[in-house]
């Protein structure tokens, strides 16, 4: 997957405002890429635009989303349907609402096979049963015939992951897959995601989840990627002021948590010139952040969109 110059804009009061602004991203085969950021930074808009889940009457999507050389944005609905579900699977935040309450778990998992493969009914059922075992569902034979309301949140999320994986997709998009789950269940779901062969685009706000699963991390702020680096590198050597602020806001044994001044700007009030995070840095040198900084490579594989990271100091005021 290759994304170039992607912009997603929403119409608010007759005007379009960009939630994702000129974004470039690569998801290599077999890798897990985590997109991290707070709410309102455009993470979910990015995920939804990849599989065309946005509302076309209110949303404008521009740019290039290349999947194996095909631009997904120019495909018609029917062509797109062949790719999503088949080549690209999706896991949503709330497993209970992602499943059809009137269909048995096994049938739901087998359903995508009906559209994307020419397997017979028995083969489809066999594959679904196999997947229930693959995602470590407790009592898989029994669960096959159960309805979503009979399962716990963690089991539902396993079922959703199984149905996303049933067509052996090359890419799995997971939008906050563990946010609604308990920590002990979350740990098992993350373990499951680590064992999947497909590429994963993991959208999350939790740096802990990123550290557990990702190969590469892209930190998003206000519709832009502000820093991208291999997972270990971003936690060992975070450079962008936003990444560093976010990591110091996590309770990790420090006496006082770091508070980022201000709030994520709303779409209408997004600063369109200059650095978008600049105004939230306390004690900024005056001459920095006049121009919109570009994403620059500081060390191999580590890109930062910031002109002042060398002089930036977190201050606890």
């Amino acid at each position: 997957m290759e994304i170039r110059g992607l912009s997603v804009s929403f119409r608010i009061g007759g005007q379009y405002f960009a939630a994702v602004d000129d974004l470039d991203l690569d998801i290599p085969e077999g890798e897990t890429l985590a997109v991290m950021g707070e709410s309102g930074c455009g993470k979910s808009s990015l995920a939804h635009s990849i599989i065309g889940l946005h509302d076309p009457s209110r949303t404008r999507v521009e740019g290039y989303i290349g999947y194996r050389g095909q631009n997904l944005l120019t495909l018609c609905e029917a062509e797109l349907n062949k790719i999503r579900g088949g080549h690209i699977g999706m896991v949503f935040q709330d497993p209970a609402s992602a499943l059809n309450p009137l269909m048995r778990i096994g049938e739901q998992i087998a359903e995508p096979l009906m559209y994307h493969t020419s397997l017979t009914k028995t083969e489809r059922e066999g594959r679904a049963a196999q997947l229930l075992r693959d995602v470590d569902m407790p009592r898989p034979e029994q669960t096959y015939w159960q309805y979503p309301h009979e399962l716990s949140g963690g089991m539902c999320q396993r079922a959703v992951i199984a149905s996303a994986l049933v067509c052996r997709p090359a890419l799995l998009i997971a939008d906050e897959p563990t946010t609604a789950l308990d920590v002990t269940v979350q740990a098992r779901i993350l373990e499951l995601l680590r064992d999947i062969d497909a590429s994963i685009l993991l959208i999350t706000h939790d740096p802990g989840v990123v550290a557990e699963t990702a190969d590469r991390v892209a930190v998003m702020y206000a519709g832009q990627i502000v820093e991208t680096a291999p997972c270990a590198e971003i936690f060992a050597n975070p450079l962008h002021p936003y990444t560093r602020s976010l990591l110091s806001a996590m309770p990790r044994g420090q006496d006082r948590l770091y508070v980022i001044p201000g709030a994520v700007p709303s779409l209408e009030n997004m600063p369109r010139t200059g650095c978008r995070f600049g105004r939230r840095i306390a004690r900024m040198p005056e001459d920095c952040h006049d121009d919109a900084p570009a994403l620059r490579e500081v060390s191999p594989g580590h890109y930062v969109r910031c002109s002042c990271h060398a002089v930036f100091e977190l201050c606890h005021c």
């Binding site: 920590v183 002990t184 740990a187 802990g208 989840v209 550290a211 557990e212 270990a232 936690f235 060992a236």
Partner: peptide, 22 residues
């Protein structure tokens, strides 16, 4: 519960990613 906390462990001043399982 403690093993399940997804986390970034701080060891020896540097922060490293922890791969824990339940």
């Amino acid at each position: 519960l403690i093993a399940s906390i997804p986390g970034i462990n701080v060891t020896g001043g540097a922060i490293c990613a922890k791969h824990s399982c339940t």
